[in-house]
């Protein structure tokens, strides 16, 4: 178990977790139609920054915002702090160099880790952080998720016929596919609880990764890997203990079908779900971090639901390569 010490989101909807949360609550979406953003690609619907962003600068700003939101100070140049970057395409196909540049910017001495596990990266990176902290290898972890869109990515998803020409509709019978998105999001984790605070504290309790072992680009028809992840997250609990399920909800025909099957197999069909891609698009390496933050904020807004002084969420994701991942977080009043 590790503690969520601070977080931030930078997306086309705003700077900072609070601005993004308020945008979602107000029903604002970053999705719009782009006709000439990239040469050759057909018009596509996505959530992109107005001006092209520098990958490293965007991540640095995201980390700075997360630092300023912290419950208690974490020294980024400390040898007990590790930087973990979650990304699928990095800075123009280079994944490690931007991670090194971010760590260097903050004077961190450790070799950074890049998690590149397709669209599950943002959840997997949090699992990696939790394990490294629990094993006592580091005291703090800065998990940054970021991806920027490009001709490379949009053309590929178009060739795959996975993009919806309109704003996506997760779990709707009318869904036509996904929209891509850009964002950077950061969560800072710590191993030790900070000094007593009357505010409830979020902890990352558990995480699991499972492969469908079925197909590299199509989800399992029985939701195998996703089901195994959910089952792991429910160990020692019942579905009634879960207050919110953050789904992947890409709005492709097959992904949503697969998730529905996995959720039902795990007995979680009565739990409220959160599907955020109609606001941000699929932000790839950022998705797991960004969507986890917004699920936490949604719960903080519903603190009246707290029974036994706690609330719990599960965040799940699936990706190419047949990989699925899930984490469970708990909001609890410190004793």
């Amino acid at each position: 178990m590790v503690i969520v010490n601070g977080h931030s989101i930078i997306s086309p909807l705003g700077e900072g977790s609070q601005a993004n949360f308020e945008a979602v609550q107000a029903g604002r979406s970053g999705l719009r139609l782009y006709t000439d953003r990239f040469a050759d690609v057909e018009p596509f619907c996505a959530s992109l920054f107005d001006t092209p962003q520098d990958f490293v600068e965007l991540c640095v700003r995201s980390v700075e915002l997360a630092v300023s939101s912290q419950n208690s100070a974490v020294s980024l140049q400390d040898a007990g702090t590790i930087f973990i970057l979650s990304t699928t395409k990095g800075d123009q196909l280079d994944l490690l160099r931007p991670a090194q540049a971010i760590a260097r910017h903050f004077g961190n001495p450790n070799p950074p880790i890049v998690v590149s596990n397709a669209c599950t990266s943002g959840v997997c990176a949090q699992i990696t952080a939790m394990r490294l902290l629990e094993a006592g290898i580091y005291r703090h972890a800065v998990v940054v998720g970021c991806d920027l869109q490009s001709r490379f990515i949009v053309s590929g998803f178009q060739a795959f016929k996975a993009l919806s020409p309109e704003p996506c509709l997760p779990f709707s019978p009318e869904r036509k596919g996904l929209n891509l998105g850009e964002a950077a999001a950061t969560i800072i984790f710590r191993r030790q609880p900070s000094a007593f605070s009357s505010q409830p504290v979020w902890t990352l309790e558990a995480g699991a990764i499972h492969n469908d072992a079925n197909h590299i680009s199509a989800p399992s028809r029985t939701g195998e890997g996703a089901y195994l992840c959910l089952k792991d997250m429910l160990q020692g609990l019942t579905p009634a203990d879960i207050d919110l399920l953050g789904v992947h909800g890409t709005a492709t025909l097959y992904n949503d079908d697969m998730e529905k099957i996995a959720i039902e197999r795990a007995g979680l069909q009565d739990v409220p779900v959160s599907a955020l891609k109609p606001f941000f698009g699929h932000t790839m390496g950022a998705a797991g971090v960004l969507e986890t933050i917004l699920c936490m904020m949604q719960m903080e807004n519903e603190k009246w639901k707290m029974d036994n002084g706690q609330l719990q969420i599960i965040k799940m994701l699936s990706g190419f390569g047949g990989v699925n991942a899930a984490i469970r977080l708990k909001l609890k009043i410190q004793n």
């Binding site: 994944l95 490690l96 991670a99 090194q100 070799p111 880790i113 890049v114 998690v115 590149s116 596990n117 997997c124 990696t128 699991a208 990764i209 499972h210 492969n211 469908d212 072992a213 195998e224 890997g225 195994l228 390569g321 047949g322 990989v323």
Partner: peptide
Amino acid sequence: HIQGETAFYILE
């Protein structure tokens, strides 16, 4: 037929 964890890291 491995349905356990699969993960990929980019490292120096």
